[in-house]
Design a protein around this nucleic acid. Structure first.
Length: 479
DNA sequence: AAAAAAC
């Protein structure tokens, strides 16, 4: 198989554009997909992000458009010949930029349409006529209804990040769009991950697709060093700072599961003295683009984001990714940590795990087909207990500054828990037991699926699933 | 327990 761009049957303008970008050797997905697309076949491609997917479909697609010129169509009819659909606005911008690069020496015109921006400039551009349209679903439907996008002559459709495009939230819009397209067309479908259900659904949109798989699907880049730290919610922010310091990391992405959580965490980290920006879907498009630019320009240390930033975003040199929350969907873990260690660079992925994340961690182990070892993070100095992570001041003795538990112990109250362990020894949050160097030496952090207590007496009657789940519950407070 | 995509 040829792996050099110079060996490909690409038109001269495309070869020049590729050379301008300094590309000589194709990546595996490119080497496999380009000949197939050039041959006009449907593709179902599984490839991790950062492997050159965009070039893998845009180059052969542009080549096909050049080769089969639809001659003498009036520009007033502005037929779109190739449509590329993406699940986020940022991705649409990114892919559109690349398509423009590859097409710059050809007569082919491209445009990008997405929401959150004035429709008028987009409409004007579409009226000029474009051969390649890059879009997010919602805004594209607006343009279809306004008759500014005419899709009845589309020859190629690309669904990038297809697993997301086919999920329940996007499917109705996607279905409506596909109904506007001719049945006779080439469909290219790419995703980093393929669940069995998505695979089945995807197949219903394709005709005799060629399956291309360059890495094991759902695999994570081997250049990424992954850690899972088991800790309390209260210690999460401190853990981020500790890891940044230990590993000498300049910048990082921090992922949260909710928009509100993202905004809150960004503010809190800012108070901690880190330059931080937030990115989520409730921000205006202008703010979203600015956040991303500030991170790219190195003006901020941390980009705190929802999963809007999990997929496909190609930012060079993101040295680390933190999962402040364990992602709801295991596949999103793969996408999130795919932001680091791109194009062969090394990266660090740190997931902050709490006791409540048992189920999600189980799903992650299933997806990654590996047993996840939980680690304890060594904090410099004392374990923090001055503030809860919601910002409220915790109870403290006025004079000594002791915690409530410590004060009770000093007063000799019966119900006071054992003294806090030595300053630097981390507490095992699993069982809220003192955590000492000796126990640490022999006792690895507990595995998720290993029952830690013998099931005897009453608990033997509980269904196994519940019994294991019970282990993750904090011991009930004695009345 | 959520996010994204349209006004």
């Amino acid at each position: 198989m040829t792996t050099k761009y110079s060996d490909l049957a690409l038109a001269d303008p495309l070869k020049r554009a590729v050379a301008d970008m300094g590309y000589e050797t194709m990546t595996p997905i490119q080497a496999q997909a380009i000949p197939v697309v050039l041959a006009g076949q449907d593709v179902m491609g599984a490839a991790q992000t950062g492997t050159g997917k965009t070039a893998a479909f845009s180059l052969p697609l542009l080549q096909r458009l050049l080769k089969h010129e639809t001659a003498s169509l009036s520009p007033a009819r502005h037929p779109v010949r190739a449509l590329v659909l993406l699940p986020t606005r940022e991705l649409a911008v990114q892919v559109a930029d690349q398509v423009k690069q590859y097409a710059k020496y050809t007569q082919l015109r491209s445009a990008v349409v997405f929401g959150g921006m004035d429709m008028k400039p987009q409409t004007a551009e579409l009226r000029q006529g474009v051969e390649v349209l890059v879009a997010t679903p919602g805004r594209l439907l607006d343009h279809i209804e306004a008759k500014t996008a005419v899709l009845n002559q589309v020859e190629y459709v690309v669904l990038d990040e297809a697993d997301r495009m086919l999920d329940i939230g996007f499917l109705p819009d996607l279905q409506r769009i596909l109904n506007y397209l001719p049945k006779q067309r080439t469909t290219l479908l790419f995703s980093a991950t393929f669940s069995p259900e998505i695979k089945r659904l995807a197949e219903s949109y394709l005709q005799n697709p060629v399956l291309i798989e360059v890495a094991r699907p759902n695999a994570t880049a081997s250049t990424v060093e992954q850690h899972f730290y088991l800790l309390d919610d209260d210690d999460k922010r401190r853990a981020i700072r500790q890891v940044l310091k230990d590993k000498q990391l300049r910048q990082a992405f921090v992922f949260c599961n909710s928009k509100l959580g993202t905004a809150r965490l960004a503010r809190a980290l800012e108070r901690d003295g880190l330059k931080t920006t937030a990115l989520h879907g409730d921000k205006s498009q202008d703010e979203r683009l600015k956040s991303l630019e500030a991170f790219k320009a190195g003006e901020v240390d941390l980009l705190v984001a929802t999963d809007v930033a999990a997929r496909g975003l190609d930012i060079k040199d993101v040295p680390a990714v933190f999962n402040y929350d364990v992602p709801f969907h295991a596949e999103d873990y793969v996408h999130r940590i795919g932001r680091t260690g791109r194009a062969g660079a090394s990266g660090v992925a740190v997931t902050l795990v709490t006791r409540g994340d048992q189920r999600l961690m189980g799903e992650l182990e299933k997806l990654l087909k590996t047993k996840i070892e939980l680690e304890h993070l060594e904090f410099d100095g004392e374990r923090p207990h001055g503030r809860a992570n919601d910002g409220r001041r915790r109870w403290q003795d006025h004079e000594t500054g002791d915690s409530r538990d410590e004060a009770r112990r000093v007063r000799g109250e019966r119900r006071a828990p054992p003294p806090r362990p030595a300053a630097s020894a981390p507490v095992d949050p699993f069982f809220s037991q003192p955590y000492t160097a000796e126990t640490d030496a022999e006792q690895a952090p507990p595995a998720w699926d290993t029952p830690q207590r013998p099931r005897t007496g009453r608990s033997a009657n509980i269904k196994p699933k519940r019994a294991v789940a019970a282990l993750f519950k904090a011991p009930a407070p004695t009345p």
